[in-house]
Simulated assay, not measured.
Amino acid sequence: MTDSRTLLRSARRTQPLDDAQNGVAPPSETGELLAANTWWAARHGLEATLCDPRDGRQRSAEAVVALLDRTERALSAAAGLEAVRSAVGRLLRLGSPAHRQRAAYRRGGVRGVLELITGDW
């Protein structure tokens, strides 16, 4: 089974061609911005703000993740749209791993984190 990250990478590679064929202007985002958002979300969780690649403003992670709609056609072609939507929905519903680990630490210290990562969450 293909994981959601692989599907998103694939969609990001095919989306520019799809956009060009449909007369959609290319996005202004940079690889550095995407890398920075990935690092920021990993460090601070999806509860933090991210830099919106459309205009550079800080927005809730949920609003930035809504840009997933931009890759909908490419994900559908790869039969991965539902898998990615499910994974993103789960992250937004349960919180990021960083958020869950910090909460587990507040509740039970290192033991709480160990229970989280070794248990069935």
Rank of each mutant, 00 (worst) to 15 (best):
A77R: 09
R13S: 08
A103E: 12
P53N: 04
E72R: 15
T2M: 12
L8R: 04
D69W: 11
E82R: 04
S86W: 06
S86G: 10
A66E: 14
L68V: 02
E82D: 11
A61K: 04
P97N: 02
A78G: 05
W121F: 04
A74L: 01
L91F: 02
R9H: 13
V110E: 14
A79H: 13
A74Y: 01
R12L: 14
N22C: 07
Y105Q: 02
S60L: 04
E62W: 06
T30Y: 04
L33E: 14
L67W: 03
D18A: 15
V64Q: 03
L75G: 06
D120M: 06
A104P: 08
V88T: 10
E32R: 13
L92N: 04
V64R: 05
L91Q: 12
L81F: 10
R102N: 12
T6A: 11
C51P: 00
D120Y: 05
Q21I: 13
R93V: 01
V113N: 02
P27L: 09
A104G: 08
L92Q: 09
R9E: 14
A42G: 12
R57V: 00
R73M: 07
R93D: 07
E32C: 06
L94G: 01
N37D: 07
C51T: 11
V24I: 14
T71W: 15
G108I: 06
G119Y: 05
G108N: 05
R9W: 10
A104R: 05
H99W: 00
G45T: 06
Q58R: 11
T6R: 06
E47H: 11
P53G: 02
P27Q: 14
H99C: 00
R93Y: 04
G109M: 08
R102E: 15
Q101F: 04
L92T: 07
V110A: 15
R73V: 14
P53I: 01
T49I: 02
E62V: 09
D3G: 04
D19W: 14
S76P: 01
V65R: 08
A79N: 12
A48Y: 10
V64S: 02
A35E: 12
H99I: 00
T6F: 00
A79Y: 11
S76L: 12
R107A: 14
N37M: 05
H44W: 07
N37L: 05
L50S: 10
A66G: 14
